[in-house]
Simulated assay, not measured.
Amino acid sequence: MRLSLGREDFSTLPGWAEDRPAAAFAAFRRSAAHATTIRSYRTGSLGLSHAEFQPAYAAALAQSTSESGYLPDAEARSFFETWFRPVAVTPLDDDGLVTGYYEPEVAVSSTPESGYRFPFLRKPENLIKVPDPENPPAGIPAGHAFMLAGADSTDCCPDRQAIESGAFDGKGLEIAWASSRVDVFFAHIQGCARLCFADGRIERITYAAKSGHPFTGIGGLLVKRGEISADTVSMSSIRKWLADHPEQSEKLMWENRSFIFFEKAAVENDFLGPVAAAKVPLEPGRSLAVDRHIHTFGTPIFVSAPELEDFDEPRPFARLMIAQDTGTAIVGPARGDLFAGCGSEAGEKAGSIKASARFVILAPVGSEIARRAGHEQ
Rank of each mutant, 00 (worst) to 15 (best):
E263A: 14
E263Y: 00
K264S: 15
K264G: 12
A265E: 15
A265I: 04
V267A: 03
V267Y: 02
E268K: 05
E268C: 15
E268I: 13
N269H: 06
D270G: 03
D270C: 03
D270Q: 15
F271E: 13
F271Q: 06
L272M: 14
L272E: 06
G273K: 05
P274W: 08
P274Y: 06
P274S: 11
V275Q: 09
A278T: 12
A278W: 05
A278R: 03
A278Q: 10
A278D: 11
K279Y: 08
K279E: 07
K279I: 07
V280F: 13
P281K: 03
P281L: 07
E283Y: 02
E283L: 13
E283N: 12
E283Q: 15
P284L: 00
P284N: 00
P284W: 02
G285Q: 06
G285D: 11
G285I: 07
R286V: 14
R286Q: 10
R286L: 08
S287A: 13
S287D: 03
L288H: 10
A289W: 08
V290M: 05
V290R: 00
D291C: 01
D291E: 08
R292M: 12
H293N: 14
I294D: 00
H295Q: 06
F297G: 01
F297T: 08
F297K: 05
G298Y: 02
G298S: 10
T299Y: 01
P300F: 13
P300C: 11
V303Q: 07
V303C: 12
S304W: 00
S304K: 01
A305F: 07
A305T: 00
P306E: 05
E307W: 03
L308I: 06
L308H: 01
L308V: 07
D310R: 05
D310E: 01
D312M: 10
E313Q: 14
E313A: 10
P314T: 12
P314Y: 04
P314M: 13
R315V: 06
R315E: 13
P316S: 13
P316I: 13
F317G: 02
F317Y: 14
F317E: 04
F317N: 15
A318M: 11
R319S: 14
R319H: 08
L320E: 00
L320T: 00
I322V: 13
I322S: 12
A323I: 11
A323S: 12
D325F: 10
D325S: 04
D325A: 04
D325R: 14
T326I: 06
G327C: 08
G327Q: 02
A329Q: 07
A329I: 01
I330Y: 09
V331E: 02
V331G: 01
G332P: 05
P333E: 10
P333N: 03
A334S: 08
A334L: 07
A334R: 02
R335H: 11
R335M: 12
G336E: 07
D337F: 12
D337E: 14
D337G: 00
L338I: 15
F339K: 03
F339V: 12
F339S: 08
A340S: 03
G341M: 06
G341L: 09
C342T: 11
G343T: 03
G343A: 14
G343C: 13
G343D: 03
G343H: 01
S344R: 07
E345T: 15
E345Y: 00
E345D: 13
A346D: 05
G347W: 01
G347K: 07
G347H: 01
G347N: 09
K349Y: 15
K349L: 15
A350Y: 01
G351R: 00
G351S: 03
K354L: 14
A355Q: 04
A355D: 05
A355S: 06
